[in-house]
Write a protein that binds this DNA or RNA. Structure first.
Lengths: 160, 160
DNA sequence: TATTTACCCGAGTATTTTAGTCGGTTATAC
DNA sequence: GTATAACCGACTAAAATACTCGGGTAAATA
């Protein structure tokens, strides 16, 4: 479980797909323009997203991409995993070729931590993120009328 | 909030420091050998950890590093933040130099998500990680006697 | 059937980040 | 004063990231 800009690009693109979802597929050119990501780079990312059954494609004119499942059924973790293709855990991973026991202990600790983050992101769907954003916009609109109050409700507080 | 091997190195080193904590400071050479991280690279990481008041140093013979606070008072998020020195959010960050409103919407969405992860990692202390590891070792020792049963309790289930 | 659209694919490249080296300086215990 | 070990900056190798280029191929439309 790695978490870099690459994953952000993927999540951003998937969110764009979810927000602009219609009966028609969305072309990568549209996403490229809206999100400011190079077209060819998007193609590479979407090849991985497609292989992981996160999006489906329609070829030819009028074609493009659509989410494979509903936004409520796609979790952020899957999207990030799809583009980051888990490069096996550096050194001493699984095989246990470390000279003394101690080394593997802290390694295991990190793996556990990584698993935690994965579980966390498995609890957030694209729909969750969109809903949260909508709520935020609502709050901001009200703030323009009456004096502002801090809004610190977070996504996960609504998720089981 | 970035999450790469660099952060893992830092967390691993901090955990090593916490586990082998004595009255005496720990040298980077020891950590280097135990964890298989290059000495000079550790020096670079610890320079940042020191500036962020996560460790304190003692110079000269018998010197080394110690945790600035107790392991129960050091959260994983701080450690990762210290070494990753937040490179400002790519493009359109804050300034809002995006051509149409839509671009910034998905950007904000991601920022919120990133904040979530940060909050999550702010809830895990070094002590939490160590305790969890100890519990795991206990469980494994018992597994050697009686038939195994799945052990899926996670760190966060114990944290507020 | 020709053309356009837009996905598909691999190879190559520039930039950035990561990881590590090297050569030195400074503080301090002995 | 000498060994130790933190400090510091600059430099380098390797890897990942972000992107380009040049072709393909499937399908709709004309």
């Amino acid at each position: 479980m790695k978490l870099t800009t690459k994953g952000r690009y993927a999540v951003t693109a998937m969110l764009d797909l979810a927000i602009h979802a219609e009966s028609k597929p969305i072309t990568l050119s549209e996403i490229s323009e809206r999100q400011g990501i190079s077209l060819s780079y998007l193609e590479q990312l979407f090849a991985k997203l497609r292989k992981n059954e996160l999006v489906k494609s329609v070829r030819g004119p009028g074609g493009g991409y659509q989410l494979f499942n509903s936004p409520a059924d796609i979790v952020v973790a899957k999207v990030i995993d799809a583009v980051n293709e888990s490069t096996d855990v550096t050194a001493c991973g699984g095989k246990g070729n470390c000279h003394d026991g101690k080394q593997c202990i802290t390694h295991d600790l990190w793996c556990e931590l990584s698993e935690q983050i994965h579980q966390f992101l498995s609890g957030i769907t694209l729909q969750n993120v969109i809903d949260k954003q909508k709520a935020k916009e609502e709050a901001q609109r009200e703030d323009n009328l009456r004096p502002s109050e801090p809004n610190n409700t977070f996504i996960l507080s609504q998720v089981s």
